[in-house]
Design a protein around this nucleic acid. Structure first.
Length: 521
RNA sequence: GGGGGUGUAGCUCAGCUGGUAGAGCAUCGCACUUUUAAUGCGAGGGUCCAGGGUUCGACUCCCUGCGCCCCCA
């Protein structure tokens, strides 16, 4: 049971008084109310004292008592507006309600739109409707809710009292909506594939394990969407995507949440160059939408959008640079990818033990360590070492490399795309071949016989793309932590408050002990 | 896993070299029909994250643990 503190007791008392007045403290439907944002837009200076009649509702964010008048500021998800509530204007019942209103309660109000002496747009109330009691004290009105832990654990408080948090949350949903619209316009269909997998394939990550009782088998929460969507390509669904949650049982950081949202798109008769065009077009469409939505974006000298992320500035003007993996490697590591002796030397410099490891495992480590952080971007890193890409088509001109790109923004991997491997015999071989020195959870090579069977049926040549939606939103909305773009990030569970029954006791014992000690000295 | 920071009233934060915890907002009471971080006067409110130690005495010093944040692996 939650403790009832003195503040809650005050509010419960007011709740009871409302009930005595015949008012339900938890309200009822309030039809035909107008959004505050729309009401604010109604105002014209010609109205003078007599504006239109309006009906608004929202949460009480501030109250200012002036004797027989009270000003309330109420807030809905479109904005805030001031109410002028005069004793004479709202009558005995209305005034009785006004007296019992606390910060955080929900009020409905009928009135006329007008301006006060000081020019503040105001609803001059003719009737007040009590809609819901809040039993908790709100945070400080000026400083808001700063404590990050509270903001994450009780996100609803964050959304109410930090307007930028609500704005970010709503912008994220608009981004997701826009992605669906964009893909629909290009003829893609959205599907849903299983979350519970018998083989955790399609990416290199450690899975969450769960158990199905009736079948008595262990199952994995999916770590990627890839293998089911490709089965659908085999089945003739030629342009397909899924936007869904994937789960990786790994560390938590400003860039990692154990569950996150992934978009995967597959297009038959295309390859990774088509996916590059798709990625660029999609992200630029999102930027256009956000700019229209009021996100403060500047134009770069080259005509595209200029995106700020922390101290970084990303010039999003198309086309974005395409840089071969091997070139970037040579540039930032100072070593050729095929110079094994030099690779080992470099590996030791960054405290990575290269012994017994496949040269490309070393290359991968050096790339992640020394190259990726430098990739402010936007930049498409193209053509990855084939040995690291068991699901990707090899380059026809040189099988040393795979037709894969990753998009980097602000040093973060945002997108990953392939020309999809559709050769079932090579696929089967690659599933079997575990690279030396690569721990299993870091390998994508996990035998999936059913998937190989699907490929044997024939999968059309195709391009595939994965985008990490949370990270993309971080970059687009300039949010430094993934927890700021996920409404309920994973935190270690914690008891909210202590057991009430012991509180008074402990406090009493404490002060007695204290008195004894000091008294005795 | 390692390092750094942090945890004090509902919220935002002070609290020095150890001596029974402070402010602002919020709450409660009074006044006020054009305020807007309203104002004026008055009042109440604390497991100082938890457990142990040192001490006559610990929010403060020491040890252990826990939550959260940041950096590194």
């Amino acid at each position: 049971m939650q403790p009832v503190d003195k503040y809650e007791q005050d509010r419960r008392a007011k709740m009871a008084k409302l009930a005595e007045l015949g008012i339900d403290p938890f309200g009822q439907r309030f039809p035909d109310r107008q959004y505050i944002g729309q009401v604010r837009a109604l105002w014209k200076d010609e109205y003078g004292e007599e504006g239109p009649a309006v009906r608004v509702a929202g949460r009480v964010m501030a109250r200012r008592d002036m004797g027989r008048v009270t000003f309330f500021d109420i807030q809905d998800w479109t904005g805030r507006i001031q109410l002028f509530v005069g004793k004479k204007q709202v009558g005995e019942q209305g005034w009785a309600i006004a007296k019992l209103v606390d910060l955080g309660d929900f009020l409905g109000c009928d009135g006329r739109l007008g301006k006060t002496k000081t020019g503040e747009l105001t609803v001059f109330a003719t009737a007040l409707h009590f809609l819901t009691k809040s039993l908790r004290t709100p945070p400080a009105k000026w400083h808001g809710l700063r404590d990050v832990e509270l903001r994450y654990r009780q996100r609803y408080l964050d959304l109410i009292y930090n307007p930028e948090s609500l704005r970010t949350a709503l912008r994220r949903t608009r981004i997701v909506t826009k992605i669906r619209e964009f893909l629909a316009e290009r003829g893609f269909v959205e599907v849903e594939t299983p979350t519970l997998h018998t083989i955790a394939g399609g990416a290199a990550a450690r899975p969450f394990i769960t158990h199905h009782n009736a079948l008595d088998i262990d199952l994995y929460l999916r770590i990627a969407l890839e293998l089911h969507l490709k089965r659908l390509l085999v089945g003739g669904i030629e342009r397909v995507y899924e936007l869904g949650r994937v789960f990786r049982n790994e560390g938590i950081s400003t860039k990692h949440n154990p569950e996150f949202t992934m978009l995967e798109v597959y297009q038959a008769y295309a390859d990774y160059t088509d996916m590059m065009e798709l990625t660029e077009s999609l992200i630029c469409a999102l930027l256009d939408m956000l700019a229209e939505d009021g996100l403060p974006l500047e134009r770069s000298a080259r005509g595209g959008w200029l995106l700020r992320f922390g101290d970084l500035q990303l010039d999003m003007t198309r086309p974005w640079p395409r840089r071969p993996y091997a070139d970037l490697f040579r540039e930032h590591v100072g070593v050729n990818v095929d110079d094994v002796a030099a690779l080992k030397r470099k590996a030791r410099e960054i405290d990575f033990d290269p012994e017994g490891k496949h040269p490309d495992v070393i290359v991968n480590e050096l790339f992640e360590e020394l190259v990726e952080p430098k990739l402010t971007g936007p930049v498409f890193v193209v053509d990855y070492p084939a040995s690291l890409c068991p699901l990707t088509r090899r380059k026809r001109t040189n099988p040393r490399w795979a037709e894969r790109f990753e998009l980097f923004l602000a040093g973060m991997e945002i997108a990953n795309a392939y020309s999809e491997l559709n050769d079932p015999l090579l696929q089967e071989e690659l599933f079997r071949k575990q690279l030396e020195g690569l721990p299993e959870e870091e390998s994508m090579a996990r035998m999936d016989e059913d998937f190989v069977l699907a490929l044997k049926t024939g999968m059309p040549p195709a391009g595939g793309l994965g985008i990490g939606i949370d990270r993309l939103v971080m970059v687009l909305l300039n949010q430094p932590s993934i927890r700021d773009v996920i409404l309920f990030p994973l935190l270690r569970p914690r008891r909210l408050q202590y057991d009430v029954s012991t509180v008074g006791q402990v406090a009493e014992e404490r002060s007695e002990q204290r008195a004894e000690r000091h008294g005795g000295s």
